[in-house]
Amino acid sequence: MKVTIIGGSGFVGTRLITELLQREEITVLNIDKNPSEHYPAITEIANVLDKDALQRLLIGTDVVVLLAAEHRDDVSPVSLYYDVNVKGTQLVLEAMEANAVKHIVFTSSVAVYGLDKENPDESAAIDPFNHYGKSKWQAEEVLQKWNASHADWIMQVVRPTVIFGEGNRGNVYNLLNQIASGKFMMIGKGENRKSMAYVGNVVAFIQFLLENKTMGSTVYNYVDKPDFTTNDLVRHTGEALGKTLSARRIPYWLGMLGGYGFDVLAAITRKKLAISSVRVKKFCAETQYDSTKAMQSGFQPPFPMEEGLRRTLHAEFGKS
């Protein structure tokens, strides 16, 4: 089986390639606009918006894993979300059809549900609050429309929650870094629960989907349980690193006021800042998602949530 990963030079893609290359029956090609630090020999540089390049590079492919996306909170112009995430998906499907490739694993996001929802499953209402979530949902609609006229295709959609793990430099890393440094400031009470997913489990689930094929379109949330509160994360970080950690606290309204102040500063300086009102709002939101469907599919996560967190903390911050 030849697996072509589109957008595999990043955090999740690199981990996925590492795992797939251990399988003798699988060959891997990575297509990305950025070079791969770890796997340059199997990487072709191309943009997801370059249909001609996609058609040429997908020759001989059996399955596509589409990871490429604009996902940061501060992408500018915002049209990039829709160009890459929506139009890019359409162009990948067209390139697949040109090469008779009929199996795609597409990574969407729980961002399609919006914030502060009550543990939504895959049938919950769609209510994205930002351009990333809106564009991911529009990309899913592209897949749904395609599926209506391509009944013999396998289209597997994974909606992961925020992904963390060794080597990641996203929001969870920034949070854990602040906690581990002892400089962390809690906004609000810290009782809001956060669904998260360890990269080793997300990659294992994608591999599971490659091997368990069902005609038509299927959608899965991916979340590792249990859901930790922010207070839990402070406690687990201290235990993993052998430190006594506590967090200074400020009220939510003051945190949001500060976020808006940074929004104004970013607009004036035209610089991307680490703090914004959107990030404060996301940090304090209740972000729990139901992953019963994935866990009842026959998949068994290889890493308990606590072990994934411990591995990440030890790799990034050591143990005193």
Rank of each mutant, 00 (worst) to 15 (best):
G133N: 05
G8K: 05
E286T: 06
T161D: 04
F106G: 03
E191V: 06
E97D: 13
D232L: 10
S195T: 04
V199R: 00
T18S: 15
L66D: 03
H236G: 08
L91F: 12
H71Q: 10
V158N: 11
L115A: 02
L313C: 06
T287F: 04
I31S: 06
S277N: 02
G133T: 03
F299M: 09
L241T: 07
E122L: 10
E19S: 14
L210A: 13
T230F: 01
S109Y: 04
M196K: 02
R279N: 09
D263F: 08
M186Y: 03
Q296L: 09
A151W: 03
I26R: 12
L241W: 02
F184C: 08
L309Q: 07
K272N: 15
V105P: 09
G182C: 10
L20E: 12
R311D: 11
I6G: 01
V28S: 14
P77Q: 09
R15K: 14
K225C: 11
I154Y: 09
G7C: 01
F317T: 07
G216R: 07
A111V: 03
L93G: 05
I42E: 13
K282I: 03
K136L: 01
V172G: 00
K281S: 13
A266S: 13
L21H: 10
V264Y: 10
E118G: 04
D127S: 15
F129G: 03
V280T: 09
Y39I: 06
L80N: 11
R56G: 06
G165Y: 00
N85Y: 00
P160G: 10
A111C: 08
A111M: 03
F299T: 08
H38G: 04
V223F: 01
G200Y: 00
A139W: 00
M1R: 10
S123E: 15
G259N: 11
I250D: 04
K2G: 10
Y260L: 15
D121I: 03
K136C: 00
G188F: 02
H38Q: 13
L58K: 04
E166Y: 06
D290L: 00
V48R: 05
R23H: 14
A204R: 00
G188K: 02
V112Y: 00
G60E: 10
V78R: 12
T214A: 09
I154T: 12
L21W: 07
G167C: 07
D224L: 08
P128F: 02
H150C: 09
Y132C: 08
A46F: 09
V64L: 07
R169L: 06
N34S: 13
N99A: 13
A139M: 01
V234E: 01
T27C: 12
T287I: 06
T312W: 02
A125Q: 11
T14H: 03
E97Q: 15
Q156Y: 02
L29E: 14
T237C: 12
N168K: 05
E44S: 14
T229C: 07
G255W: 05
E44L: 14
D127W: 06
G165R: 02
